[in-house]
Design a protein around this nucleic acid. Structure first.
Lengths: 350, 350
DNA sequence: CATACAAATGATTGCGCAATCATAAACATG
DNA sequence: CATGTTTATGATTGCGCAATCATTTGTATG
């Protein structure tokens, strides 16, 4: 009986026969002839280690092919070096561009990104969210306003730096990188007015941000002396056909606008389609303005004038904001709010 | 002095004042009135826990807002539930499509993806690779053949399931999901022949895969009784201008093909440009066939006939192959090799 | 050369969880 | 009801690393 106990005590390896994983700090330490923690320091805090030791460690790492286990490192240090990016989809140029820019910038600082694709069922959303928060990201990027109350609450509670992108809302969770929808409405009004258009119409979705652009457009047109702007509202989801139907209603009601301002390129394409089917020449008989540069606005015929939101720029700014915060976590006094602006692109349709 | 020691010994909390992180299994266990490991089981292996306990745990999780720490879980279980996907870029529809499909499929099984964007300096590549391997992914997806010797060696050594995509090469690291370049050459030959074309020319890059398509094309044409196929080789990197120059050389040499088969859409665009500049009508005076559907083939004028490689499909198959392997790791006897096929898209240019 | 002080290195502990082993409770069988 | 067999739960340990504390070594100062 005492034998059994003894066996249990000193032959613990027989109790635990997990498969061996790759090489660890300890392997490197043995080869380098230093303690494991010195290896750790040589890799993560080179300045705390003498040149000689650093070189020994470097060679040992090379020799054994050591790749630090970031799961272990993250657990111990409470730093995952991960940033979560939530976007509806990446099969959409504007988001792909943004994600690419964020990742590009982050990777320079030793961070990686993990993507959450939210463009699916509502049910999945919380699951996805939990799965990604489970990775304990050091930062989170949110796209649009698709975050639920629960998400919001949890995010604030978590204390993780958050960047909300593509919008400048009033009650940000944390940081904000986007553009002013009001400004878009205003500038589009001025732009088209300057081009000589006087009879406006609008086909817009009724979402909060679209409506903000819409009201800003109306306000500015009023300043310019244009009060009557026939409008058709597109029920969600915006689609080419919906846009087409709605502009049809406007036209059938007897309105004869010179230019139709749309809440998205998708809707604008619908308007273009309707114009084409009526045999109208764009922009002579009817001009069309899109928004978002989300579709391939430049490649349809006639190419669509639109408002470009620079994905690269937004992505880069997001990454910089996060990295800045990582470096200096106490800067939460001044809530960051970056206006990325936009560009009105004048193509054939106006 | 003994006082000092005593203080050190029983007040260990003062020695370790790491900031508290979120709620843990233990918190949930306390609330649920069970042991931590039972909570773990209720979440990961529900079938091993009684219905009553499961419900208690579920409620406790909800109450304390518990989100499992996957860093800890991964470290303990040696399963990161992560899949690394290496692509040159995601700002390219075909890769975005693939990545989206992979992620979509993986997420259903509780996996997430982490992206490695390889389309940058060579120097960064190994750094990126190490950074991502440091996350200890359960699976790896490689795009193209951009992996170096060292990468290859390490991957094989790591024992991590690997899928190479977009190609059916001869010495895969592990699994393979792609299409037969030979088949492409053959089908393109038949397709164009069936459309009535008899005088062929080729403008192609000299990369291994392009050449395989090329030789298959020649073989099939020979079977069809066409022996003379003037060819121009484009030096890397393929570009629109390179394609244009090379087709120019062919034409200037006195060849008068009815159709030019190109190794990529990029090159094909160059041919289209040259045709336009000569005032030729496409496809009457000269037909053009692209490959890859990588550019916006459908949106140029005239729209380009091309060979479509289905990103969704490839992505889905990749994910399935990986999930299958995760479920059944011993299936390495039969090396997986999936042919995803392709589709010849007939547009205005042929 | 004793002392102070910084720089470099080492020893110990625990991050949060799951694998492993151990045990208790529930149930079946003759 | 003694025995075996399953089912449900608990106790312990270590995954690989970095934070923390402790010690050694090297260097400057009077």
């Amino acid at each position: 009986m005492s034998k059994t106990l003894t066996e249990h005590n000193n032959d613990s390896s027989s109790m635990r026969r997990r498969q061996p994983s790759g090489t660890t700090l300890i392997d490197v330490a043995k080869v380098a002839g230093v303690s494991p923690i010195t290896v750790s320091r040589a890799l993560n805090r080179p300045d705390q280690v003498s040149e000689k030791t650093r070189e020994k460690v470097r060679r040992a790492v090379e020799q054994v092919g050591y790749i630090p286990n970031m799961l272990a490192g993250g657990l111990a240090s409470r730093q995952s070096k991960l940033v979560a990016i939530f976007v509806p989809t990446i099969a959409h140029p504007i988001f792909a561009e943004m994600v690419q820019a964020v990742m590009d910038e982050l990777s320079r600082a030793g961070y990686q990104a993990i993507l959450g694709l939210t463009g699916y069922q509502k049910e999945t959303e919380e699951t996805l969210f939990n799965a990604i928060l489970g990775r304990r990201p050091d930062g989170i990027v949110l796209t649009g306003t698709q975050h639920s109350k629960l998400m919001r609450k949890r995010l604030i509670a978590s204390g993780i730096p958050v960047v909300e992108a593509w919008d400048l809302c009033d009650d940000p969770i944390d940081m904000l990188v986007g553009f002013s929808h009001e400004q878009v409405g205003l500038e589009v009004a001025r732009h088209l007015y300057a081009k000589g258009y006087r009879r406006f119409a609008v086909v817009t979705a009724e979402d909060a941000r679209g409506m903000r652009r819409y009201h800003a457009l109306l306000d500015e047109l009023r300043h310019l002396g244009i009060d009557d702007v026939p409008t058709a509202f597109v029920p969600p989801p915006s689609s080419l056909n919906a846009g087409r139907e709605k502009v049809c209603e406007l036209l059938d009601a007897g309105h004869r606008p010179e230019v139709v301002v749309c809440s998205s390129d998708t809707v604008a394409h619908g308007v273009l389609a309707e114009a084409a089917s009526r045999g109208w020449t764009v922009p002579k008989d009817l001009a069309v303005m899109g928004f978002g540069e989300l579709s391939n606005a430049s490649r349809v015929y006639p190419s669509l004038s639109s408002v470009r939101l620079n994905g690269d720029k937004v992505g880069g700014l997001i990454a910089q904001a996060l990295l800045e915060r990582f470096k200096n976590p106490d800067a939460e006094v001044a809530p960051l709010r970056i206006d990325t602006g936009f560009t009105i692109i004048d193509r054939e349709s106006t």
